[in-house]
Design a protein around this nucleic acid. Structure first.
Lengths: 223, 223
DNA sequence: GGGGCTAACTCTGCATACAATGGCCGGCAT
DNA sequence: ATGCCGGCCATTGTATGCAGAGTTAGCCCC
């Protein structure tokens, strides 16, 4: 996805700016994930375009992308709305996570490189700092980053393409459902890292499953 | 836009006609799945627009969708190309199928309605006809339909959204890798239907896993 | 007072027009 | 020849304009 990093942008010199559609898509994702755009809220192309200082065209293209990712719902000729998530849909999401996160963890354990593991550990460090500072917003984003990074380690690009938006949807879910269960979560992450680091596929898969189950249980209690 | 509307639209109450972006997206998918657009081939917006008799705008929006679905690859300012699939990427796809198809089958066994089961059976019937007629193209599409329908039965909309494009990618893979292993495949499908019909979640999951494993093995032999 | 008709407005869908970037080709110097 | 430089062309990126679907509100008629 064009959205993130491009830490390795091999593009031309300097100026090479991202297409506006990507800027808009990223911004829309942020607005939705941060809650500034409420679930069910209608998105008016023209208004968004003016707010972001672009024409409607990049906005429309971004809308197609966000729609494919599940962040918004489009009804032909009737408008686009920020996706909402019913309890049923949340369970649906957990069901899929329960299938994909253990797979991602297993593959990560199989093929992670030391460098990548370092990045994972670094996220964990930043999470500790954020925890101490009580910065919950930051923690939510780090949580997303952590899970995305695990999928990156899987080295399965098809899985990555599916899972990264899924992880973001999950982040959105937590933001809207209730507080985050920060403390538990990160010790589980620690366990997962160790399993991946050890290259223990079975254990990594099991830890990931356990983690998602715990997240679901937590969601159910709060829901 | 010349008037081609009359073909399918009752014209009575509003709507009725699909947005061109959807028409274009569907057509592009077909062209790619059928092989009329070869992997790696470059897609020129203007050319596509003219061929389909529309402006570039619907084409561009369709491109965003297809890109999100993984059928094409877009590099900013350098063009869009029909996605190709290396052996590694094919294995990646199978890995994800191996996670999602058993899940879909399990959920289908849990919540399928008789009506839906009828539709599944009907696909199987059509497949028998196509098999007798030796119509391989038809069989490939029916295969896709079958797997998509199983996911539909799962009643998990999030899963459906992910899995349906995945199934189409898999169809594309078979078309490009080698002939389809029609005979085996459909007895496996029969077994899967029976498990779903019986509401046996464990068995359905197991049958689905077995089916995907067999497909992968077949692919590996031919690859 | 209520049900529908209609007119006006809003917004989406599509097309056309314009800008800017990247690739290509030929010329020039080395 | 080889390699760099500069302009041209093909193609993508972005903006604007226009037509028609959808919605809403007021009006008429019952």
């Amino acid at each position: 996805m064009a959205g993130m990093s491009d830490s390795s942008s091999p593009d031309t010199l300097g100026a090479a700016h991202l297409p506006l559609r990507d800027v808009v898509a990223t911004e829309l994702r942020r607005l939705i994930l941060s809650g500034e755009l409420a679930p069910g809220e209608r998105l008016i192309e023209d208004r968004l375009a003016q707010q972001m200082g672009v024409s409607r065209n990049p906005v429309r293209e971004a809308i197609r992308v966000l729609s494919a990712e599940g962040f918004i719902e489009v009804t032909a000729r009737r408008g686009t709305f920020v996706a909402s998530m019913s309890a049923v849909e949340a369970m649906n999401l957990f069901e899929v996570r329960l299938a994909l996160e253990p797979l991602g963890a297993r593959l990560a354990a199989r093929s992670a490189t030391p460098e990548q593991l370092g990045q994972l550990a670094e996220i964990l460090d930043r999470a500790r700092v954020a925890t101490d500072a009580g910065n919950l917003d930051s923690l939510a984003e780090l949580n997303t980053e952590f899970h995305s990074q695990v999928f990156q380690l899987s080295a399965n690009s098809y899985l990555i393409g599916m899972a990264v938006p899924m992880v973001k949807r999950a982040q959105w879910l937590f933001r809207h459902s209730a507080a985050n269960r920060a403390p538990h979560s990160w010790t589980e992450h620690q366990d997962l890292i160790e399993a991946i680091q050890a290259g223990d596929e079975e254990l990594a898969e099991s830890e990931a499953r356990h983690h998602v189950l715990a997240a679901r249980a937590s969601f159910l209690r709060l829901g």
